[in-house]
């Protein structure tokens, strides 16, 4: 089980990194989302894996899953939504403004700016 979770984290990280290194905004955003999953699961797993022991107190139970990583990851998930939304908005604004969805500065754009200078 540990092997499955760890390899899933590794695979999602690898996929996320590869997509983050792409040249257009959309794959980069997807890559960031994938990395977010990997990081969230990674953080969650730092509480170790427990099956069938949700951190909801019951009278006759003594073993519970670690609640702290869960609480931290819960807010992380919500925040990452906010962050994704901002990044998407920036990417969208850049595309609508220049009709270009490259993440890197394009060489001709650079020259344009140089020509603007007196």
């Amino acid at each position: 089980m540990e092997l499955l979770v760890a390899s899933a984290i590794g695979i999602m990280t690898a996929g996320g990194l590869y997509l983050v290194l792409r040249l257009r905004t959309f794959p980069v955003i997807l890559g960031i989302s994938l990395l977010t999953y990997a990081v969230n699961v990674f953080l969650f797993a730092s509480g170790r894996l427990t099956i069938g022991a949700a951190p909801v107190l019951r009278d006759n139970l003594t073993v519970y899953a670690d609640p702290l990583p869960q609480a931290l990851v819960l807010t992380a998930i919500v925040i990452s939504f906010g962050m994704t939304a901002v990044v998407v908005m920036i990417g969208l604004g850049a595309f609508l403004g220049s009709n270009d969805d490259h993440v890197d500065d394009q060489p001709e754009g650079h020259e344009d700016r140089a020509e603007d200078k007196p």
Binding site: S7, I9, G10, T13, A14, G15, G16, L17, R22
Partner: peptide
């Protein structure tokens, strides 16, 4: 090149996660 970076990153997180999943705090 990107695949190389990605695989290295994936292996790194895998190794780290696998390592601590098998050890107590």
């Amino acid at each position: 090149r990107d695949t190389g970076v990605a695989v290295a990153g994936g292996l790194a997180t895998f190794a780290l996660a696998y390592h601590y999943l098998l050890r107590d705090a």
